[in-house]
Amino acid sequence: MQKVTREILLAKAAELLAAGTVNRVLGWKAGEFTYDVTPALFTTAAELEKDFVYGPFSGANFSKYLVKETRRDEGKVLVFLKPCDTYSFNQLLTEHRFDRERVYAVGIPCDGMADIQRIKDQAGDGVSGVECDGDNLIVHTLYDGDKTLAMADCLAERCVNCKSKKHVAYDELIGETGDVIDSHRFDEVEKLEKMTEDERFAFWQNELSRCIRCNACRDVCPACTCEKCVFGNPNSGVENKAISDSFEEKMFHVIRAFHVAGRCTDCGECSRVCPQNIPLHLLNRKFIRDIDNFYDEYQAGAEVGQRAPLVNYKQEDLEPSEAVERSGNNA
């Protein structure tokens, strides 16, 4: 597979800008450290040349940015989409959240993105920079010099359990598109299902009690595109960012999981951005697995305009009582 490099993307962006196909580019630029890459908007080739970066931390899913970006201006916006991003892209189109005509989508292949937490776990404290070197990462540390880690050991969970290398939407492809992968992404959910109720409660209590209500998961989630969020309501009692309760008493994460049920493409952005490393994607995956089990396999965003099973009654649908029976104590 062709490796995507900064140069290739720069050249493509410059070409499309010059041709007038697009008048702005959604891309990444470096933050304080090489590993806190942030999304940014570029309007000229010069800006791109100066700040545009691409590397193992360019993991942000740009689909959601299109909701606001396409409203902002006339003309098209260029967006680079990894295979997993294209599912969110389609799901947002299904929900009419942006105008397809305002977007030029370039599909880029992806071998997986790195998770800085996994790097820190292996390289110790004081990581000051990370560089790519073939299949390895060179990690600069403040106290311990450079360390070489295998990229395979640093992949984010969503990339280890990558569900698809296939681009389901694009105007143009760099390299080649791949296939849907028979991944092991539900293994972790199965483990949770096998727990007793008490064990499962303890597991989630432990995880969710760390939540600081920074709203990063909500803000990054491509399924969370409400004009006004229910949690933005001052009367909801959940607006505060401070930890006002020990454990999800206001059920922020559970309500959020319900809100995105059937629409979540399992892009994994929620867990990627969580500063407390809460495995939020597991809540969504449980929904996806249940939907698969009860209503046949369904991948949100696989096609534009598809009808999600939860909001599409069919006569052969499972009776609710049967669903309860089948899922036993996991209902």
Partner: peptide
């Protein structure tokens, strides 16, 4: 002001 225009309601 709250509507996303997502068509969920139209479909059901």
């Amino acid at each position: 002001w709250m509507c996303n225009g997502c068509s969920s309601c139209e479909r059901v």
